[in-house]
């Protein structure tokens, strides 16, 4: 049981970076970016093939993040230069990335058994039981990313990025090139998603072309769960809620698995969670109540 809980926490933290990326585009930038399914795999593929070829796992992870940045920027360019809708721009990149990812992998599946990964490296520094290495590393990275993302969103540039999602006309009238902000937001978001993909691949010790399928919906489910439970009053509260949402989402999946469903049913289940969340008036009330509570709280 404890082991299952620890496993859930580990998964939740490693995927939390992806969820933060989804939060950044969907919520902050108000941009329904579907690049995620592709860029997650790109991250895993880049990291795995560099490690497989004998490269440093740290370098491999960094390269994965850079790959994600470019994937996001590509989607952004499709939207800002060619005026393709946000939805379609993401779908196009995601589709193109499927081929790119196969090229990077060079085959359907790259195994990392017995290879040095950031997790085995981290474990070797730990005096503890190596079972918790991935969880601790995930926690460390998530804390750093949460802090970094929060501080970034409070900078002059960060505020301009938030405003681009909140009221584009307003921030353009204040002299901000909103196209640049969208490019920046999409790049950071997909950088985080690829980071997550790189860590997940190293943790599961393989990368394959299908590892990103359904990631966007999983990310959305986590964002929705987190916000429903922990609220969304301030940016910091939102960011932390989203990370907790990621862990809870993995816990729900683990629980359902224990109840006898097959892992292959996960995607269906995830889609159902999102549909339920979006359709259920109760959840909507819940989300709405968060907002009214905030109103009365602030007006008092």
């Amino acid at each position: 049981m404890l082991y299952a809980l620890a496993g859930t926490l580990e998964q939740g933290l490693l995927f939390a970076l992806m969820v933060l990326g989804v939060y950044l585009t969907f919520r902050v930038l108000d941009y329904a970016d579907l690049t995620v399914d592709g860029s997650f795999t790109t991250g895993g593929a880049i990291a795995a093939s560099i490690i497989f070829a004998g490269g440093s796992p740290w370098l491999a992870t960094a390269a994965a993040v850079v790959g994600g940045l470019f994937a996001g920027m590509f989607t952004g360019l499709l939207h800002t230069v060619f005026k393709i809708t946000p939805l379609l721009s993401g779908i196009l990149t995601m589709t193109a990335l499927y081929s790119v990812n196969l090229r990077i992998l060079g085959r359907a599946n790259v195994p990392l058994l017995r290879a040095d990964t950031v997790i085995t490296k981290f474990n070797s520094w730990l005096p503890l039981d190596s079972i918790y290495g991935a969880t601790l590393l995930g926690l460390l990275i998530v804390v750093l990313v949460v802090a970094g993302l929060y501080l970034f969103l409070k900078t002059e540039v960060g505020l301009a990025l938030q405003a681009t999602g909140d009221n584009e006309q307003m921030i353009r009238a204040q002299g901000v090139n909103t196209n640049h902000m969208k490019l920046l937001g999409l790049a950071i978001s997909n950088g985080l998603v690829a980071f997550s993909g790189a860590l997940v691949a190293q943790n599961q010790q393989f990368a394959d072309a299908g590892m990103g399928i359904g990631m966007i919906v999983a990310g959305l489910a986590s964002v929705i769960i987190g916000e429903a439970i922990f609220g969304r009053r301030t940016i910091l509260q939102q960011i932390i809620a989203v990370v907790c949402g990621s862990v809870i989402y993995r816990a729900v999946l683990a629980l359902v698995l224990r109840l006898g469903l097959a892992p292959t049913d996960f995607k269906l289940l995830t889609a159902l969670i999102v549909v339920a969340a979006l359709a259920s008036p109760q959840v909507r009330n819940w989300l709405g109540k968060g907002r009214t509570a905030e109103r009365s709280g602030l007006d008092a």
Partner: peptide, 12 residues
């Protein structure tokens, strides 16, 4: 910051 350079600096 209208018409100024926006930096990676704490805004407020």
């Amino acid at each position: 910051k209208r018409g100024q350079r926006r930096r990676l600096r704490k805004a407020i």
